[in-house]
Design a binder for these strands. Structure first.
Length: 1000
DNA sequence: GCTCTGCAAAGAGGA
């Protein structure tokens, strides 16, 4: 067996930031003139410390070049928060190329003597942004092309899989389960059958259009090699050829030929996060290995990396193993080496985790980390807007590029962003290729791409590890239940003290770690139940093999949510295909939406009666909306003003469309909104009104779907499919094209997220109201760049596509008139006399009035009077704390105070919530507490928003009581307008201090 | 100056 020894990774690293030094100068120091945005350094979570897990902040960077000697980089660093106690870090022998700038956070490994660290060829590592964990595959793929590595991090999930990949995944699964259980021929065959003909990989097979038998055939070719490997490395290692493997305590230096015996499998898919090396990854197999050599045997716990493809023993494969040896350091003694196991042949290669290879890989990691964190920059001191930075350079290797899965994104970015940069040069042969591959895009499209790419970069969260909510000091109790394949129910008990309710909620995503160092990120999953001191979680891994006394912590996992989807959609929008071209024309270039003339051409005669029946239940504008949608060739926007029956309208629309034989994709940003519509729809379906029955999972289970053909049938038989906008990554949407797509809550969804479902439909309907709250954007810069503009708002300028639902069934006329005056210009009308005149029913009012005989409480009488549907309580003279009353409020702190007070009065039936959370809902009586009570303070931005005020005042059906200090609130233009109106209608009263509020 | 929804993930091979 030919085994290579200690392959030295000679990697040429590219650097194209500003401080590359000139070698003609004798001695000079450059301070960096690029002011990059440093997402780590600016983060308050970066905790500086000394010791083993040190974190230093870089204060100054100097490049030192002496004639005739190699260049060095000197870093002035500190681990003290006050930025005193400076230390020096000297980078040599290639480490000086690490693109570190002042302000960066670094981790140092190695020796430090009297305040000076030396990182050179022989010892030490510098880890740039150690809290940015990069996966083993990202780093090993960056060897060939760093640009591709960075692009696939950003456009995660935009690479479609291949048949070989799926076969690879299944082979991994079979091998991993076999070696932990039973590697006999009979059992392995049985397992292979169970996995291939089971449900686990059906969706992937459907997506790739593969049949189970075809996959089984490929799998079977591998199985003999499984047994050969087991024979060679588990049962009869004596028969094995010797391999070259040198470990530090392996005796004499020449004693490097040994035989390998795998004695025990300790873990499968072991997940390790290493904030020491800034790495993360999953180790296929963690095994106890005995190394037999002349001077005896020694045992190590080592990583095995499985490969089902061609037996290449390539740098990429070997690098992955070397990175896993580094990851292993978090959990156990240095394995110093690992193995590459090629499943096709059963051959196993040792891979030594030698210092020089580890060093080169860490340098590579630092470069990838640099590019990921410096994706934007601010070029001038005066101008503060961020700009897109260049990606790692395009490599000059057409063979590699030809098969690259990121080619589209690579060319797109070059064309839209980099071609304008003087500093970026492309391989000449590639320039015409880039131009050709992007020629379908107009300048407006490239601009749209750049803008939205920048917008999503500014709010990208790169760092996994945050000092967030955590419940610690937990031990595992009871048995672990395997609820379904790969889903393990765990129970944790707090060792002391109760679990604070706010820290973990049912349904939250959690990361389970050991409290002990090195046990970070053991498993991820969801919170099932929280009670007192106990938590149950559904985790992706079974943790019962860990020592009984392991102390755990559960962290709320916010992850990097939502950035993958928009980047993916943006990339898709720029593709050279008819669906994308159409959307570009409509969305970017505002092409006028078209409508057909006559309903008769879309309405099949046999559906006429059904449609007429459904229309009977609708009002005039709702009927108009139905007509408009049926006539549309491109899209329709339905403005659903408050209380105008959006859900009813959507239901009717779905029913009419499917009666006409159209397929419909129904989506919304939130699952609850999708559920609402489905629940209403379920009533008409004459099936059990529990929507659980309609989930894809449940349908497959109840019909015991076992083959790809069955699955295909199920998918094709559903004329109406509902999902959240993020959920359109489901395989069903990869092949199916719907006639219509309806997007609910469209004015609250970010443009690029809203785009997702539109790719799989011929026409779309957006339902929303831009006078209510827009998409939530936390990042101020992203907001300035226009991120909160929903697709609904953007397309609204094409008025011919807009239908307004103006007849509302929620508010009585007095309440409605406020909103009409404020934003709807009188368009809103009551659905009936009954709605218009409805007042609140207070059965105990008479009795209560007697109790309120006291003149000082006469204001209360006025407020309670059902014939006063709108009332503004002026707290100006009363001096009453605004915190004394309230149900909805713009401020969460106010709500907390109110909730606490109500709890004291044992009143928990009244729902207290923010204006934002109340959007889309209503109540008979709404009390709005505006809180503000001073004029001179800084004005908050919350009350300046017309849309928020509009939402606040349109939640009440019968009675709207607003509380606040009139002069304070008049500083806000929307409230000023409202108060002016109320004044003219004599709807403002003053009130005195009240002591009890349990009257409602 | 304070409003908060979304979601699995690293790797599965190919040249």
């Amino acid at each position: 067996m030919g085994v290579k020894f200690g392959l030295y990774l000679k990697l040429s690293l590219f650097l194209h930031v500003g401080w590359l030094f000139s070698n003609s100068t004798v001695f000079f120091v450059i301070s960096c003139y690029f002011s990059f945005q440093k997402k780590v350094a600016d983060s308050p979570d970066a905790i500086l410390r000394n010791g083993l897990n040190n974190r230093y902040r870089v204060l100054e960077v100097s490049v030192i070049q002496r004639n005739g000697s190699d260049p060095e980089k000197h870093l002035a660093i500190t681990a003290s928060p006050s930025l005193e106690d400076r230390e020096l870090c000297i980078l040599r022998n290639g480490w000086e190329s690490v693109p570190v700038v002042p302000g960066d956070i670094v981790h140092l490994e190695g020796q430090c003597s009297s305040g000076t660290w030396v990182i050179n060829a022989q010892s030490g590592y510098l880890v740039l942004y150690p809290d940015l964990l990069l996966s083993g595959t990202t780093i090993s793929s960056s060897i060939r092309c760093m640009r591709r590595a960075v692009l696939s991090e950003r456009f995660r999930g935009s690479e479609s899989g291949s048949p070989q990949m799926l076969v690879g995944t299944i082979l991994h699964d079979i091998f991993q389960q076999s070696i932990t259980n039973d590697l006999t021929q009979e059992k392995v065959q049985e397992l292979a059958n169970k996995i291939v003909y089971g449900q686990k990989y059906l969706k992937e097979m459907y997506l790739l259009n593969m049949k189970q038998a075809q996959i089984m055939q490929e799998i079977e070719e591998y199985l003999p090699s499984f047994f050969k490997w087991a024979e060679d490395f588990m049962h009869n290692p004596a028969n094995q050829n010797k391999m070259q493997l040198k470990l530090s305590n392996g005796g004499k230096p020449e004693d490097v030929s040994s035989k390998i015996e795998v004695v025990d499998i300790l873990d499968i898919e072991e997940n390790i996060w290493s904030p020491r090396f800034g790495l993360k990854g999953k180790i296929d197999v963690t095994a106890r290995v005995k190394i037999h050599c002349q001077s005896g045997a020694q045992s190590r716990v080592m990583p095995l990396e499985l490969k089902s493809g061609k037996e290449s023993n390539s740098i990429e494969h070997r690098s992955q193993v070397i990175l896993y040896t580094l990851l292993s350091l978090e959990r156990r003694a240095d394995p110093e080496a690992g193995f590459l196991l090629y499943l096709k042949t059963g051959t196993m290669y040792p891979v030594s985790g030698a210092r020089m290879d580890r060093r080169e890989l860490m340098k590579l990691r630092n470069h990838v980390a640099f590019y990921l964190t410096h994706s934007t920059y601010k070029s001038d001191v005066g101008r503060q807007n961020s700009q897109l930075a260049a990606l790692p350079p395009v490599i000059d290797d057409s063979q590699t590029c030809k098969y690259c899965s990121q080619m589209h994104n690579c060319f797109l970015y070059s064309r839209a962003v980099e071609q304008k940069m003087a500093s970026v040069a492309f391989p000449p042969a590639l320039v015409p290729v880039i131009d050709r591959e992007t020629q379908h895009l107009k300048p407006s499209h490239l601009e749209y791409f750049s803008l939205w790419y920048l917008i999503f970069l500014t709010c990208e969260v790169l760092f996994l590890i945050k000092a967030g909510d955590c419940v610690g000091n937990m031990i595992r109790v009871d048995e672990v239940h395997e609820v379904s394949e790969g889903q393990y129910l765990h129970f944790f008990q707090r060792r002391n003290g109760a679990i604070s309710g706010t820290n973990l909620l049912v349904g939250d995503r959690v990361v389970v770690s050991g409290e002990e160092k090195g046990l970070l990120g053991l498993a991820t999953g969801y919170v099932r139940e929280v009670s007192g001191t106990k938590v149950s979680c559904l985790l992706g891994r079974n943790l019962s093999n860990l020592p009984k006394n392991t102390v755990f912590r559960l962290d709320h996992d916010e992850g990097d949510v939502g950035t993958g989807v928009p980047f993916k959609n943006l990339s898709k929008l720029m593709k050279d295909c008819p669906v994308s071209e159409r959307l570009r024309n409509l969305i970017i270039d505002f092409q006028k939406p078209c409508f057909i003339q006559h309903l008769s051409s879309v309405l099949p005669p046999e559906a006429k009666e059904t449609v007429a029946n459904i229309l009977k239940g609708l009002n005039k504008p709702q009927k108009q909306a139905m007509k408009q949608v049926l006539l549309s060739k491109d899209y329709t926007l339905i403005v659903g003003m408050p209380g105008t029956g959006k859900t009813t309208t959507i239901c009717a629309l779905v029913r009419i469309l499917s009666a006409c034989g159209f397929s419909v994709l129904l989506t919304s940003f939130t699952h609850t909104a999708v559920d609402n519509v489905l629940l209403k729809l379920a009533k008409f379906k004459k099936v059990h009104p529990d929507i659980q029955k309609y989930t894809e999972e449940e349908i497959c289970r109840s019909r015991s779907i076992k083959s790809v053909t069955d699955l295909e049938e199920v998918y094709n038989s559903q004329p109406v499919v509902a999902t959240s906008c993020m959920g359109v990554n489901h395989p069903i949407f990869a092949q199916k094209q719907f006639d219509f797509c309806i997007v609910d809550e469209a004015s609250q969804i970010s443009q690029l997220v809203c785009l997702g479902p539109l790719f799989c439909s011929k026409r779309f309907v957006l339902v929303g109201d831009h006078q209510q709250l827009p998409p939530l954007v936390l990042n101020a810069e992203a907001r300035d760049l226009g991120m909160s503009e929903s697709l609904f708002k953007r397309l609204e300028q094409n008025q011919n596509a807009v239908v307004q639902l103006t007849v509302q069934y929620r508010m009585n006329s007095k309440i409605m008139s406020l909103s009409n005056m404020l934003v709807y210009e009188g368009k809103l009308e009551c659905g009936s006399e009954k709605v218009s005149n409805a007042t609140v029913n207070l059965p105990n009012l008479k009795k209560l009035k007697l109790d309120l005989g006291d003149a000082s409480k006469s204001w209360l009488k006025e407020v309670l009077d059902p014939d006063t549907p709108v009332c503004f309580l002026n707290t100006e003279k009363a001096g009453c704390k605004p915190s004394d009353i309230g149900i909805i409020s713009p401020y969460r702190h106010q709500l907390k105070t109110i909730t606490d007070l109500m709890a004291k009065w044992k009143e928990n039936r009244v729902e207290v919530n923010t204006v934002d959370k109340y959007q889309g809902r209503d109540k008979s009586i709404i009390i709005v507490s505006f809180v503000r009570n001073s004029i001179d303070e800084n004005l908050g931005s919350l009350l300046k928003d017309w849309r928020r005020l509009n939402v606040a005042i349109t939640r009440a059906k019968h009675k709207l009581v607003m509380v606040g200090c009139v002069p304070s609130l008049c500083c806000y233009p929307p409230l000023e307008k409202l108060l002016c109106h109320l004044q003219s209608q004599a709807m403002i009263s003053f009130f005195s201090i009240i002591h009890k509020c349990n009257i409602l």
